[in-house]
Write a protein that binds this DNA or RNA. Structure first.
Length: 465
RNA sequence: UCCGCUAUAGCUCAGUGGUAGAGCAAUCGGCUGUUAACCGAUCGGUCGGUGGUUCGAGCCCACCUGGCGGAGCCA
């Protein structure tokens, strides 16, 4: 992209080559410090996490206006890159001309002070200008890109599965209904029930809760595939790690079993970490300093250690033997509670841990039944601080067994006939998992609330903007 | 949805039944190298809402609403 403007990222990459050179910068004021005849502006142009210090003095014809410049104002600055006399930066720009492109009103709520995340959530359109969110959303972008790179490098095909689905109860929670009908005048059929045949699609439709089922047919053609898109859950969940709209990555691999599934998940996470450590250095250092002082050590530890792998049955044994009193009792056949998962990842292993082979009763119908007839080839990846970040399984490839599971679970055979076709017309072992994108962002930045890693978070009773 | 905490100036908070406070921001002024600059002044309030107890409520009680934390559901 050609432009008359020099970008801050280029200056920070190689400051020496800019010394005593004239440049034109454009960007936004982070802060302004003023003395009688001179002042300092910190300017960020969006291309770098770091800002540059602009030195200006009363030789500027518009010195009075510049000295009153407000946070957020957009400026164009002509000047020379020079060695800085200050301690906190090695170079700065000495302004020969400053144009005010857009003055910020003095009512800008973003101030030169610490704001709480709670307050900033009420102004999602403005919080992105603060350091924390500049760091969060650049890292979020880097993580997304590195996920694509990882799969593309490994011959996966990216599939856009539908966001509107007609399959009710895809198996994971409450769904948002997609309707074109007038809620105040719902059409009724002869029995007095709502007549969904009058919908635009001629039937009920919903927002997807997972792309997994619709990506599986692509796995039967392209071998290795993945989805990466938005997902919607209408649950009334009020926690720091649930959102109504979030993004999910769901790879599906042909001729793969659960072990390979875990290998890919582990390799993928390590790849993402190595990418953000090299490409998001400034941002990760910022998180490590101000958000989570153990972040860097944790990321390096994860990068250099193997993830633990235990079965559900082993996990239950470990928990039963644990010298800890849990609020909820542990017993084989029950779901692991958050406190149990936390104990395993935070106390026992102190690193990510795969828990596999859960009782079939507490897992989805499509998971492959083990020979013991009691457990399925499922895996959850638990990480310290967040809990479950990945859920996956080897899929049941046997048509008869899958059909039996569908009937056992009172799922409509008719509605899933297309899914059964994947087993009828040339079945094969396959496996996949779902990675909660925002949970990954939380884990990799140290941010504690999912609302602070989504640009415009949607949670129950909260859809600001 | 359940449990707990919470709501005072634009923001962050103090205020222990008896006159509404501070820091930051903003505005004005001072200051020749600042780094969340510093110093002085000014401005700033329906104490979330409704009802109750009391001579008197920001403070006590009830309900409602919002926010946060935890649990469940899950990613």
């Amino acid at each position: 992209m050609k432009s008359k403007y020099t970008l801050l990222k280029d200056i920070f990459n190689d400051p020496d080559s800019f010394y005593d050179k004239k440049v034109i910068l454009s960007g936004w004021v982070k802060t302004n410090r003023l003395s009688k005849t001179f002042g300092f502006i910190e300017l960020n142009d969006g291309t770098s996490f770091k800002s540059i210090q602009v030195v200006y003095d009363d030789l500027l014809t518009n010195f009075v206006d510049i000295s009153k410049i407000t946070i957020g104002s957009a400026l164009e600055i002509d000047g020379n890159i020079v060695k800085s006399e200050g301690d906190k930066q090695s170079f700065e720009i000495k302004a020969s001309d400053i144009k005010i492109i857009g003055l910020s009103s003095n009512e800008n709520p973003i101030q030169k002070k610490r704001h709480t995340f709670e307050y900033l959530r009420t102004i999602p359109h403005l919080r992105v200008r603060t350091n924390t969110f500049l760091a969060v959303f650049r890292i979020r972008s880097l993580i997304a890109q590195s996920i694509h790179n990882f799969f593309q490098n490994n011959s996966f095909v990216y599939v856009h599965t539908p966001i509107i689905t007609s399959t009710d109860a895809e198996g994971a929670g409450e769904m948002f209904r997609v309707s074109t009908m007038d809620l105040n005048r719902l059409p009724k059929d002869k029995k007095g029930d709502i007549d969904y045949s009058q919908e635009l699609f001629g039937k009920s439709t919903f927002l997807t809760v997972s792309g997994q089922l619709t990506v599986e047919p692509f796995c039967t053609a392209f071998r290795n595939v993945y989805t990466f898109g938005p997902t919607f859950r209408a649950e009334n969940s009020n926690t720091s790690r649930h959102a109504s709209e979030f993004w999910m990555i769901e790879p599906e691999m042909a001729f793969a079993d659960l072990e390979q599934n875990m290998d890919v998940a582990e390799e993928m996470l390590k790849y993402i970490i190595s990418e953000i450590l090299s490409k998001g250095k400034d941002e990760i250092e910022f998180f490590n300093k101000l958000i989570d002082t153990e972040l860097l050590a944790r990321l390096q530890n994860v990068l250099n250690s193997e993830f633990a792998r235990i079965t559900y049955t082993e996990a239950v044994d470990l928990l039963l033997k644990a010298d800890v009193t849990f609020e909820y009792p542990v017993s084989w056949g029950e779901n692991l509670q958050s406190e149990h998962e936390r104990y395993l990842s935070e106390e026992v292993f102190k690193r990510p841990v795969f828990v596999t082979d859960y009782p079939k009763e507490i897992k989805a119908f499509y998971m492959k039944l083990n020979d013991d007839n009691k457990t399925v080839r499922a895996m959850d990846l638990l990480v310290p601080g967040i809990g479950e970040i990945i859920g996956g399984s080897q899929r049941e490839e046997n048509e008869e067994t899958l059909l039996a599971k569908i009937r056992e679970n009172n799922i409509s055979e008719e509605e899933y006939s297309w899914y059964l076709d994947t087993r009828r017309f040339g079945t094969f072992p396959h496996a996949g998992f779902g990675l909660g994108f925002e949970r990954a962002v939380m884990y990799l930045t140290g941010m504690k609330n999912i609302r602070d890693v989504i640009p415009y978070p949607r949670t129950p009773n909260n859809a600001v903007i």
